[in-house]
Amino acid sequence: MAQTLVPHLVNDLGAEQIRIGVKEFQCMGATPPHDHPHVYLDMGDETQLVCPYCSTLYVHDPALAQSESEPPGAVFAATAPPGAPEA
């Protein structure tokens, strides 16, 4: 079974709007431990979507890559805790 990575997004800056290069993602609200429940969001045919938890407006920008956002830093990069076994 093929898996695709669904980007996790955060709004640590408190931006009213975040432009992203994907239409399917998970919103975390903020970086843990200040995150809200991680909710899967899909814009479908639309070009924007508001997170029902944190009210961040996400706007699809096809000029951005999956790992990019405007303002920068909204794509969350998870890291393993120190001492965790490598996969």
Rank of each mutant, 00 (worst) to 15 (best):
Q17P: 00
Q17C: 11
Q17V: 15
Q17T: 15
I18N: 02
I18E: 03
I18C: 04
I18H: 04
I18R: 07
I20S: 00
I20T: 02
I20H: 00
G21A: 05
G21D: 03
G21H: 07
G21Q: 04
G21V: 06
V22I: 12
V22D: 01
V22M: 04
K23L: 05
K23E: 03
K23D: 08
E24T: 14
E24A: 14
E24C: 13
F25T: 06
F25M: 06
Q26T: 11
Q26N: 04
C27K: 06
C27V: 07
C27Y: 02
M28G: 01
M28K: 09
M28Q: 10
M28A: 13
M28Y: 13
G29R: 04
A30R: 15
A30G: 08
A30F: 14
A30S: 15
T31C: 08
T31A: 09
T31P: 03
P32T: 10
P32D: 07
P33D: 11
P33H: 14
P33V: 15
H34S: 15
H34R: 15
H34G: 04
H34Y: 15
H34K: 14
H34D: 15
D35Q: 12
D35L: 08
D35V: 01
H36N: 06
H36C: 10
H36V: 15
P37R: 11
P37H: 06
P37A: 13
P37F: 12
P37S: 05
H38E: 05
V39F: 01
Y40F: 14
Y40H: 07
Y40T: 09
Y40W: 05
L41C: 04
L41P: 00
L41Q: 05
L41K: 03
D42W: 05
D42A: 13
D42M: 07
D42R: 12
D42F: 11
D42G: 03
M43N: 03
M43H: 00
G44D: 07
G44F: 06
D45T: 12
D45I: 09
E46C: 02
E46I: 01
E46Y: 03
E46M: 10
E46V: 02
E46H: 06
E46N: 10
T47V: 12
T47W: 05
Q48T: 09
Q48H: 09
Q48M: 11
L49E: 02
L49V: 14
V50P: 00
V50Q: 05
V50T: 12
C51L: 13
C51Y: 04
P52N: 12
P52D: 11
P52Y: 10
Y53F: 14
Y53M: 12
C54T: 11
C54E: 03
C54V: 09
C54P: 01
C54L: 08
C54N: 02
S55K: 13
S55I: 08
S55L: 09
T56N: 01
T56P: 03
T56H: 03
L57S: 00
Y58K: 01
Y58D: 00
Y58Q: 00
Y58A: 00
V59H: 01
H60A: 02
H60K: 02
D61Q: 05
D61H: 10
D61P: 00
P62Y: 04
P62F: 06
P62W: 06
P62C: 07
P62M: 12
P62I: 09
P62D: 07
A63I: 14
A63L: 15
A63R: 15
